[in-house]
Design a protein around this nucleic acid. Structure first.
Lengths: 202, 202
DNA sequence: CATTCTTAGACAGCTTAACTTTCCAACTAC
DNA sequence: GTAGTTGGAAAGTTAAGCTGTCTAAGAATG
């Protein structure tokens, strides 16, 4: 198919498709002439993924490019893959240098085997710092609960990764990590609603 | 203190402080003359909260204004309060009208008592839709796990809300809901790291 | 073959958000 | 009284993510 059909099929405006091509998010089609190229089903699927990353995933163009590069990568070992995927994932404002010590102390308490300079540690540290700055107390007991819940999810997430095809595994990790996040957050808010509704009616 | 000291104490540039005043995020100081006003400790704390909401919380100016309005509100019943806080919270692109039926089916399965038109339902639906569009399968079993984890957190979160002062309760709900989110997401990613590290070394 | 439509690619322009700078008259501190 | 600071308004800036315009080259149709 040509660009206008690709745009129609994917629901993405033609100018935007060109923009994604230019930005290197969408691979170029098979050129048939100087001013013509063919696109396939994989381009339609890719556009859906791009829109999911940019929209729901909340990624910037440049971060999405990095994430998609990881998805495209022939891939490494299962473990390195998760690391590569995570480091491509967004980490909020990285110009800030939060104090990692509190976060690291918790991680040691839980005996989690993580890189001390993992981007997620910075995220966690920044989150804790923001809570403290906002005057919100985070007792160990509360963080322990969050850690346990996160760990149970993480265990299953990793177990669910399809290990047969490396390419499929990276894709699974990247998409699953990123796009399940808004679902998890929404579920927590819905749980708040339900719990408070039940308390009220009891 | 006057504006320059407020700016220095809070670490927020003076021009930005004026901007927040203009945007109604920061209440005006006590005017002492036509071109002079006094600010207090509460302004310093408020600026810290504003920066936490805009930075780590990822809110836009207008959403932050709504959230802060909820925080300032004399407050309603404990339950309405959570609802008010949630509806002030961000819901991603609200121009999109995702298909709610799948999300609602899950909620019915879990027998959660939530408003069908709650913003969190849209968030959840949008998240599920993005996953599907990206070709990521979300079996009931997986969502059940996420729901259970979210519910356990939500139960404790609600139990932790200080019910003595309504004003303090709203503040707690808003900040706790919003600013614990990045921490939860970071913990999930760190759990992925730990689990995959353990699998590798075993 | 002639006419009309579509295309790739380059590039300039647009829109929104969040600041940031400039300005000025009114004050304050020395 | 003179140098510096302030509140408030308004214009300017920057970056991100598109969107529109243009041009020469092909495609589609009769």
């Amino acid at each position: 198919m040509r660009i206008s059909e690709l745009a129609r099929r994917s629901g993405v405006p033609i100018g935007t498709v060109k923009y994604y091509l230019r930005e290197g998010l969408l691979p170029a089609g098979e050129p048939t002439a100087a001013t013509q190229a063919q696109y396939g089903e994989e381009h339609v699927a890719r556009l859906a993924l791009i829109r999911a990353l940019l929209g729901t995933g909340g990624l910037s163009i440049s971060t999405a490019r990095a994430v998609l590069a990881a998805v495209d990568d022939p891939a490494l070992s299962p473990h390195d893959m998760i690391g590569a995927a995570h480091s491509a994932l967004p980490t909020m404002a990285e110009n800030e240098r939060p104090d990692l010590s509190t976060a690291q102390a918790h991680l040691r308490r839980w005996e989690w085997q993580v890189h001390e300079d993992s981007p997620a540690v910075s995220s966690m540290a920044q989150g804790l710092q923001a809570l403290q700055a906002a005057g919100f107390d985070t007792p160990d007991q509360m963080l322990d609960r969050y850690a346990r819940a996160a760990y149970e999810l993480g265990e299953q997430d990793v177990a669910d990764v399809p290990m047969d095809s490396p390419a499929e595994a990276v894709r699974y990790v990247v998409i699953g990590t990123l796009l399940l996040e808004p679902v998890l957050l929404a579920l927590r808010r819905l749980a708040h609603e339900d719990v408070s509704a039940r308390r009220l009616s009891s």
